[in-house]
Design a protein around this nucleic acid. Sequence first.
DNA 1: TGCGCCATAAAACATCAGTATAAAACAGCC
DNA 2: GGCTGTTTTATACTGATGTTTTATGGCGCA
Lengths: 206, 206
Amino acid sequence: MADDTRERLLRAATEVFAEKGYAAATVREICTRADANVALINYYFGDKLALYEQVLRDVVAADPARAPGLLGASPEEGLRVIIGTMLEKASEARGNSSLRYRLMMHEFSHPSEGTVRMLEITMRPVYDKLRTLVSAISGLPATHDHVRLCVHSLLGQVAHFAHSGPIMEALWPEMKLTAEQRKMVAEHIAGSMLVYLRETSPAAHL
Amino acid sequence: MADDTRERLLRAATEVFAEKGYAAATVREICTRADANVALINYYFGDKLALYEQVLRDVVAADPARAPGLLGASPEEGLRVIIGTMLEKASEARGNSSLRYRLMMHEFSHPSEGTVRMLEITMRPVYDKLRTLVSAISGLPATHDHVRLCVHSLLGQVAHFAHSGPIMEALWPEMKLTAEQRKMVAEHIAGSMLVYLRETSPAAHL
DNA sequence: TGCGCCATAAAACATCAGTATAAAACAGCC
DNA sequence: GGCTGTTTTATACTGATGTTTTATGGCGCA
């Protein structure tokens, strides 16, 4: 039952971290959900942070930034797909692949002790992928300030729509990120960026 | 010395809340900074939340959303000014007027127990002002989904650039929101939104 | 059977949070 | 000076957190 318990702990930890972020998650809740004793987290992983890193490592075993349907698509379509995927995965309930995005977006809007690890492990690939896409669309090098600004704008917007529950509730109660609304938001974010990139790309100034 | 101590507590609380947000701020740090005893917060204000609300009430006595130079300007200019002001104030060190924005943006990216009060008191005016501006530029009613989406995009981007320190540091170390960079970011956020609004406004489809 | 090891459990521990209390210090006024 | 109410202090309480310790149960194996 040893490995079994370890697995249960990992699974529970993944859920709780994805739901609440690193700081707000408590080892006691994780253990309760895993039907395990509080001491077992330290027994198996050392401490809370090490558990978190293990969760990240496990969950990242999945695709880094290769959303299905992204291969062969135009950069424009790629942008739409990746934004849509992030939003969708960030608001889905569970399912191993979506937890990855929930973790990512949670840490993104609630930076914490574990954030730096998380960033390097899970965010970097997405960030770089987005830069590649924006670079291809705009015709600018991926290191250009303009490209970086656009990518951060995208990430900032996604994080906001996906993870500022209380704010949304207060300012726009109808926005609950239903499947329909998610599509609308994704199209808004990707669409507005594409319009902007088209207008400001060097090609537009011929 | 009574009112004096109360004032010191309020000032210290404003600083600490602005720096760390409601949740991460501790009454002990506030009292230390104010050179006061831990018990005095409860003596003067009741509890931490009441202190926070008092800070909000005080700090909001300033302008709600009337940045200087906003009167009489075109909606487009208004948008640029308000975005620039938010970014600028959010990253300034202190000065009573800037604390307001730091509080706002902090709570915005780290929703907490005090968030709802905060939102209604300080965010709502900015939110409504932005909606008015976007509405005027786009020609759509301020309640339209398109307008709301745009405003949330703006707020999300500002919050991100102003308050996701660890993320920025990891992904874009050179971006430190210096005065120069702030101008660039503000122009990016406002400028891209204006391009988008121009392209999608009903007038563009004649 | 008894030894040893691994997994689990129960409980304790240390720390830090917000809060409460009771006594001390102080101020104003007769 | 001495009373009275207000302000301040030192300290303790309560609860939550991450962590550690100590004990217990099961199981293979000589």
